[in-house]
């Protein structure tokens, strides 16, 4: 149990996906202009990360390792993720049309989000147990959502600020990310 808590806190705060591991930066800068879409994106990513972790853990431990074809990791994982995203999209469209429209374009975009492939590869290299993989995915997704929401809140305020012309848009967003990262580095000694 302690190990799972350590994995979870490590993923959310210490090795935050965006600020420390640099995974999922494209949606971080692309979708962080408004709070609503940012949270939708975060939830969608967390959801896909968790399901992808479960699926890839099963495939890795019951197919890839017994047959000694672990070097096929990358090809298999990316296919699993692409298929999963398609299935989830169809499933949500059939069962909950409101949620489908809430996710909108973000769901198909997740296939090429490095956070999802990242968590499956991290689970594989760290050799996490089944519970560990799920907790790592949930923690990673939560950390991703947290930083994305913080960033979009700051950027909403920033619209009103008088930023120098050449700093507007992406440059100032990067500087804010640096400051957020510094703040998060305070969690460093926690575990």
């Amino acid at each position: 149990m302690n190990e799972l808590i350590a994995i979870f806190l490590g993923m959310v705060l210490i090795n935050n996906f965006i600020l420390v591991r640099f995974l999922g930066l494209c949606p971080f800068f692309g979708v962080s202009k408004k709070l609503g879409p940012a949270i939708s994106m975060g939830v969608a990513v967390t959801f896909v990360m968790t399901i992808a972790s479960v699926a890839t853990w099963l495939i890795r431990n019951y197919i890839l390792i017994p047959f000694d074809i672990e070097y096929m990791n990358i090809v298999i994982f990316i296919l699993v993720i692409a298929t999963l995203v398609q299935i989830i999209e169809l499933f949500i469209k059939k069962t909950n049309i409101g949620l489908y429209f809430a996710f909108g374009i973000y769901l198909p975009l997740i296939t090429t989000n490095c956070a999802v492939l990242g968590i499956t590869l991290i689970n594989a290299t760290q050799n996490y147990s089944f519970g560990g993989s799920v907790v790592a995915a949930l923690g990673g997704g939560l950390g991703f959502t947290l930083v994305l929401a913080m960033m979009s809140g700051i950027r909403e305020k920033l619209e009103l600020a008088n930023t120098p012309k050449s700093m507007r848009g992406l440059p100032i967003a990067f500087l804010i990310a640096a400051l957020l990262g510094l703040a998060f580095s305070g969690f460093g000694g926690m575990i």
Binding site: L19, V20, R21, F22, P164, K165, S166, M167, L170, P171, I172, A173, F174, L175, A177, A178, L179, G181, L182, S185
Partner: peptide, 20 residues
């Protein structure tokens, strides 16, 4: 700090501002 993750954000942000 510049070899730590936060330095990367700082440098790339400043470089982008410079290019703009």
């Amino acid at each position: 700090i510049f070899v730590l993750p936060y330095g990367a954000f700082l440098i790339i942000g400043l470089l982008m501002a410079l290019f703009k």
